[in-house]
Simulated assay, not measured.
Amino acid sequence: MSHESQRNIRCLVAKVGLDGHDRGAHVITRAFRDAGFEVIYSGLHKAPEEIVQATVQEDVDVLGISILSGAHNTLVPKIVEGLQEYDAFEDTLIIVGGIVPDEDREGLKEAGVDAIFGPGTPMEETIEFIRENVTRRD
């Protein structure tokens, strides 16, 4: 083993709001683990503040927000604002997975989301995006 080996990428897969559909979150959690990432799953029905706290406390590299409820324009910016308050925004890659209409995507990216992956996105595409864009904090 060389001293060049990097620690695993740490990810928080978070379900925000009242969205009770978590099959996709479980699938992505498994795929991320299979790719060698350390993954923490938030569980269902988390408030934006709880997700911010978990992101900061767990010192994650990637926050994956799974949302299917349609409340993404309200909840996701609240999470981003919370991360900014804790100075955790710059070091955290923020991705959103779920159903986000095309007309809402630009606003979320302007709010600070790095990428949005809709239903049917190949797992490898998401994993490669993370590997190419994560900020290393070794």
Rank of each mutant, 00 (worst) to 15 (best):
M1Y: 08
M1N: 13
H3N: 12
H3T: 13
E4W: 04
S5G: 00
Q6L: 15
N8E: 02
R10E: 05
C11M: 15
C11V: 15
L12F: 04
L12W: 07
A14W: 05
A14Q: 01
K15F: 03
D19E: 13
D19S: 05
H21N: 02
D22M: 04
G24C: 03
H26D: 14
T29H: 06
A31W: 08
A31M: 13
R33K: 15
R33N: 14
D34F: 06
D34S: 10
F37Q: 08
Y41M: 10
S42C: 12
S42D: 01
G43C: 08
G43D: 04
L44F: 09
H45P: 02
K46Q: 15
P48V: 06
P48L: 05
E49S: 07
E50G: 01
I51R: 01
V52D: 03
A54V: 01
V56A: 09
Q57W: 08
D59W: 01
V60P: 04
V60I: 12
L63G: 06
G64N: 11
G64C: 07
I65K: 06
I65G: 01
I67R: 00
L68E: 00
A71F: 04
H72F: 00
V80P: 00
V80C: 01
E81K: 07
E81C: 09
A88K: 07
A88T: 10
F89E: 09
D91A: 05
I94A: 01
I95Y: 11
V96G: 04
G97Q: 09
G98K: 13
D102F: 15
D102Q: 12
E103W: 01
E103D: 14
R105N: 10
R105D: 11
G107F: 06
K109F: 02
E110A: 09
D114S: 14
D114A: 14
D114E: 12
A115C: 08
F117D: 10
F117Q: 07
G118R: 07
G120D: 01
P122S: 00
P122W: 03
P122C: 03
I127K: 07
E128S: 08
E132Q: 15
T135Y: 11
T135L: 10
D138G: 12
